Simulated assay, not measured.
Amino acid sequence: MNKWNRLFGVKLRFHPLFSIVILLSILAGYFIETATLFGIVLIHELGHVMAAKNFGWRVKEIQLLPFGGVAVVEELASVPAWQEIIVTLSGPLQNGIMMVAAMALQATGVISGEWSAYFIQANLFVALFNLLPILPLDGGKIMQSLLSLWLPYQRVIVLSCVASLVLSVVLIAAAVLHIIYGGFQLNLFIIGLFLFYSNWYAYKGMSYHFMRFLIHRGNTLNRLMRQGTLAQPIVVDGRRKVTEIVRLFMREKYHLVYVMDERGAIRVVLPEQPLLQTYFNESKRGSAISELFM
């Protein structure tokens, strides 16, 4: 691997649209502004990387995208939600630190007021835009982490994807409607289209996302049992299919499944592990739980 496309041992990957945006900015005579924005985005992403590595996460790469960047990690809902929120907020935190540093340098006369104003404005834009509740922006990840504290994870995936698609359309519509107020917002339009495409692709791959969550579920269960946890009951009747029950699993909970009969009596109590093993057998996942365990 070429050492020039790595930073702190993490691979850097430039999205083609990001490269086009950079080239167009340079051709338009905004090299200094573009270089500054590139540095801001990179430091923002390094904030995510350093926080993730501090928790022992495996960081695959930093993707630089038209709207900023994304730190790609191996962990997917197999770590505590609070860790995920801290890692996500570590990016905007870097923007806040850079803004304070710029104010201090301007006050001491080290940098000019004009450049400091642009630097602060650019940091504020990157931080606030990334906090929009749209995946894969930081705000979308925080939204997904918070939802996972109260809802089954399969439902979290669906809701976050649908919300991200709707808000991506809102961005596109805002760019088009801006024509009425003085001009077409090309950058916002391109970003909106990119986010819509990214979330449409994620929407179609929700089953893959959920399967990855279940595959890593063993690590989560081991962590919960090591630290000690209260079991979250799931109450079903024997006619419910294994697939339907697994979709009720929550990210931060260990479940015991109570299977009831028609009279409301408990027929069997199942931990998660045998249900997960059954689900991974494609020939059995569509079977009623009574056919397999009663």
Rank of each mutant, 00 (worst) to 15 (best):
M1I: 03
N2Y: 05
W4E: 09
R6Q: 15
R6K: 13
F8R: 00
F8S: 02
G9W: 14
H15Q: 09
P16H: 09
P16V: 05
F18T: 02
S19E: 03
I20M: 14
V21D: 08
L27G: 00
A28G: 03
F38Y: 12
G39F: 10
I40L: 13
V41S: 08
H44L: 12
L46M: 15
G47L: 15
A51D: 03
N54K: 14
F55R: 04
G56M: 11
R58T: 13
R58D: 14
V59Q: 10
E61N: 02
Q63D: 06
P66K: 10
P66Q: 08
P66S: 04
G69R: 12
V72F: 13
V73Q: 02
E74I: 02
E74C: 09
L76R: 05
L76Q: 11
L76T: 02
A77K: 05
V79I: 04
P80G: 06
A81M: 11
Q83N: 11
E84G: 08
I85M: 08
I85T: 06
T88N: 02
L89M: 09
S90E: 01
G91Q: 07
G91V: 09
I97H: 03
M98R: 05
V100P: 01
M103G: 07
M103D: 04
M103L: 09
A104V: 14
A104F: 15
L105H: 00
A107K: 11
A107P: 00
V110H: 14
A117V: 00
F119Y: 11
F119M: 10
A122W: 10
N123M: 09
N123Y: 12
N123Q: 10
F125I: 06
F125V: 12
F129W: 03
F129C: 01
L131N: 01
P133Q: 03
L135N: 06
G139F: 14
I142S: 04
S145F: 04
L146C: 04
S148C: 04
Y153V: 01
R155D: 06
I157E: 05
V158N: 08
V162P: 05
L165H: 06
L165P: 04
V169A: 15
L171R: 09
A173H: 05
A174T: 00
L177I: 10
Y181H: 04
Y181G: 01
G183S: 05
N187I: 02
L188N: 07
I190T: 03
L193P: 01
W200R: 01
A202N: 15
Y203E: 01
G205N: 10
M206Q: 09
S207F: 07
Y208D: 00
H209Q: 08
F210M: 03
I215D: 08
G218K: 15
T220E: 12
L221T: 01
N222H: 10
R223M: 02
L224W: 13
G228E: 12
A231C: 03
Q232A: 10
V235H: 14
G238R: 09
R240F: 13
E244K: 14
E244P: 11
L248D: 11
M250E: 08
K253S: 02
K253G: 00
H255A: 10
V259I: 09
M260C: 12
D261L: 07
D261N: 15
G264F: 09
E272H: 09
Q273S: 06
T278A: 13
F280C: 02
E282C: 04
R285E: 09
I289G: 03
I289R: 12
